[in-house]
Amino acid sequence: MKLPWKKLPEQIRRLAVVSLFLVVLPFIVRSILVPSDFGKYGHYRASAVDEIIAMEIKYAGHQVCYDCHDEEVESKQAGVHKNVSCEICHGPAAAHSEDDEIELIAPRDRDSCPLCHEYLSSRPTGFPQIVSDSHEPMKACISCHDPHNPKSEKSTECEACHTEIANTKSLSKHVNIACKECHETPDAHKTQPRMFLPGKPVNREFCGRCHAETAPSDKDIPRIEMETHEEAYVCWQCHYPHLPEAE
């Protein structure tokens, strides 16, 4: 009696043995080599997450500082740096919070503050900036400004936020015109600046109040003939109101 296996051509039988072996082998190897937690949550090793979360924390977080450094925290909370985390200037503090023998850095030179406060045109308008080359170049920042609660000598009016504009305006004949003369400003703008926006002049006649031929203003103010002077444009398309002298 012939088995059905024996009925197959000899070549096929031989190849079948080899193929069967090659098909079974990977399954055996797989069951041995694949980590047992592979695929527990998805197509990955679940314990990889354990290894990642076992990493050492270096930045302790600002809450930790508040446990010991009451004085500094209190002063900081009162000022504009209240949201500036301690570790930005003092470096990662997790080790220090465990062992106060490990001292943190306290930058006192002129290199650190300009990281944020050096003038760069890319920085948002209103962010306090200086040109360090001309801003008391011989003095350390902290000799005038308390880093925990820095104060600007200037008023708390518009200039406090819109320093860049204020600085520009200070070079102009317009320096004596109060901001609110042109920008009608709701009080709530101070607390929610983006929700309550100040107004802006909308037409040529606004500038004309001073600069029109017939305006009842000071004689030295430059005049234009409103009807013929570039009548297709509004004034600030050509003249920057905060520094109209600029080319």
Binding site: I32, S36, D37, A46, S47, V49, D50, E51
Partner: peptide, 12 residues
Amino acid sequence: TAKEQLKRMQSW
């Protein structure tokens, strides 16, 4: 190595 990995494994 598979045994070793099992030991290290803990429920995260």
